[in-house]
Each structure stands twice: as C-alpha cells, then as structure tokens.
C-alpha cells in the first residue's frame, strides 16, 4: 500500500491502515517526543497524544506537502501543548534583544545521538523547548514566543542559556571521555 492509500484508509477510520501508518511513523514520532521530554515516560505521553491527534485530524490532511512534514508538525504541537500543560515552572529571564552569540563545539567529538539526547533531556524544560524549536525544528523566535506564550526576548535568552549549558555539559563529558 502506498502512503496515500494508507492515509486515505486512516481518513475512513480503518484500523488496519492506522496500524500501518503507526508502524511507519512511530519511531520518528518517538524520536521527536524524546527530544522534547525530560524522560521516556513523558515522551510516551507526548507520543500517544501525537498519534491520537494524527488519526483524529487526518481527515483534514489534503495531500498538500509531505505527510511526514505534517506528522512532524503535529508532534511539535503536541510537545508544545504538553509543555504548556504539564510544566508549570515559570522561568523569569532578562529579555535578550541583541543577537545571540554563537557557541562553538568541535564537531568531531565522539558523542552518540543517545548522548546528545541525554544532554537535551537534562536541560530545564524551558531551555529544552526553545532549543529544540529553534535549533532543530528551525522556528523563528517570534514563532516560538507565540507557541510557548512568552516574549521574544525570553525565547532568545533561553536559547542562549541552553547553548551555554549544553556547551558546558559537553566540555565536562568530553573531559571524562578524555580521561
């Protein structure tokens, strides 16, 4: 079955097609959920929400653009709503208006995907959200501010702090690896 046939089956509410779609995208969605969550349990909550949203709102998918992009977007939206619902911690940050300085790392560092995922999950939730949305998903700070319900300046400063925090952790870990 092609992706389009599967999507159409899902639009008709056929469970067989839903299972196929699930098998095809579950790893991807789980990967995204893991980046946005503190741990695997939270990731599973997000993951479940993503698929329910995908299946319920799939009838609105009009086959414009890639289906994977659509699923990714829903995953990010789910993660954001999960963050806004579950994470009550309010970070008070000084608004950062200026450009965010670059933080450089050695790309040859021997870190695995799992290592980096762990680093992200260790970040405070606010940092993690902004870092994921800006650095990996490629949203602009204006969009992120709107999604998370904070100011643009807060988004910028949290992103900068996230970068500094990650750099620090990488250096620490690198030293451990070196030793």
């Amino acid at each position: 079955m092609t992706e389009e046939e599967i999507v159409k089956g899902c639009q008709a509410g056929k469970e067989r097609c839903q299972k196929m779609l699930y098998d095809r995208f579950s790893s991807l969605v789980m990967g995204i959920s893991m980046r946005y969550a503190k741990n695997r349990d939270d990731a599973q909550d997000i993951f479940q929400d993503v698929f329910v949203r995908v299946f319920v709102s799939i009838k609105h998918f009009k086959f414009l653009g890639s289906f994977e992009g659509w699923v990714r977007k829903i995953a990010v939206n789910s993660a954001v709503s999960w963050y806004r619902q579950e994470v009550k911690e309010k970070t008070v940050d000084i608004d950062m208006e200026a450009d965010i300085p670059d933080v450089m790392v050695d790309e040859e560092l021997p870190f695995t995907e799992g290592d980096l995922l762990g680093l992200i999950q260790e970040l405070p939730s606010g940092y993690r959200m902004v870092f994921n949305l800006f650095a990996i998903e490629g949203y602009k700070h204006e969009e992120i501010a709107e999604m998370l319900g904070c100011s643009v300046g807060t988004s910028r400063s949290q992103y900068f702090k996230a970068k500094k925090s990650l750099k620090k952790r990488i250096v620490e870990k690198y030293k451990q690896v070196e030793i």
């Binding site: 790893s27 990967g31 790392v105």
Partner: peptide
C-alpha cells in the same frame, strides 16, 4: 568547530527511537 545548535541539529534531526509495544494499544 561548529555552532552548537547546528551540531545538535545534524545529530538529532533524524533521531528515531523505537516506542514500546504497548503504546499502540494505548493509542488504539
């Protein structure tokens, strides 16, 4: 050297992770 944001993006953008089997039942 690489900007840390790009470094993470390269490594994690395509991250896939196998979900637990019971999750399908929960979704269903």
């Amino acid at each position: 050297m690489k900007e840390i944001g790009e470094y993470f993006k390269d490594k994690l953008e395509g991250l896939e992770s196998q979900p637990a089997d019971l999750l399908w039942d929960k979704v269903r």
